[in-house]
């Protein structure tokens, strides 16, 4: 299904650039005239300008990545470190709990990160972390204006990320498993 589009050879007049220049001048002059006459795209769309009127974030916008909690207020992240692995600019840094780390605050999940840091100065907001996350624990939300006075301040730690991220009421995989196991009564299930 290759479609061959024949390119019309340019005439000598066209090859002097003159018609293209002329057309270009016409287009830019038209826009210039329009603007000088007072047309204003932003006003015509019924909006104002940025600092006064905050920018309207559209659906699917990739803002800053934050960690989310489930509807019970538990950390969703289980420290699988796939986001750390996939992160192209290496902005994510996870400290796994290790053998003697704190137990997960979510029953049955066994594991949660001891520390989770995202360096927002390195982050390129590509969304791969969100895409790779098997627990739906990290989302690129609609924050687009991230500023700080020091580099250290721009490294967001777990507490901050969780606070900014809010709640994501998704499937509670581990909780469902625990309930399913408890219902079977084949093996004793430790309920927290």
């Amino acid at each position: 299904m290759t479609k061959v589009v024949d390119r019309k050879p340019l005439s000598f007049y066209e090859r002097t650039y003159v018609p293209a220049l002329w057309e270009g001048l016409k287009v830019t002059a038209r826009h210039f005239k329009r603007s000088v006459q007072g047309h204003n795209t932003a006003k015509e769309l019924g909006e104002g300008y940025y600092p006064e009127v905050p920018w309207r974030v559209s659906e699917g916008y990739r803002g800053a990545p934050y960690l989310v909690r489930d509807q019970d207020g538990h950390t969703k992240c289980v420290s699988c470190q796939l986001c750390e692995f996939v992160c192209p600019p290496k902005a994510i840094r996870i400290t796994p709990p290790g053998p003697d780390g704190p137990p997960a605050d979510r029953p049955n999940a066994e594991k949660m990160p001891r520390e989770f840091e995202i360096n927002m100065l390195r982050c390129i907001f590509c969304g791969l972390c969100q895409e790779v996350c098997p627990e739906e624990a990290i989302f690129l939300e609609d924050h687009y204006s991230l500023t700080g006075l020091t580099r250290e301040e721009m490294v967001f730690d777990k507490e901050r990320l969780l606070k900014l991220g809010g709640v994501h009421a998704g499937t509670q995989k581990w909780k469902n498993k625990l309930e399913e196991a408890a219902a079977q009564e084949s093996f004793p299930v430790a309920t927290h």
Binding site: F85, P96, P99, K111
Partner: peptide, 12 residues
């Protein structure tokens, strides 16, 4: 292994 449990993902 209890020693290696939750310490680091092997692909790193």
């Amino acid at each position: 292994s209890k020693d290696f449990r939750f310490k680091m993902r092997v692909w790193f």
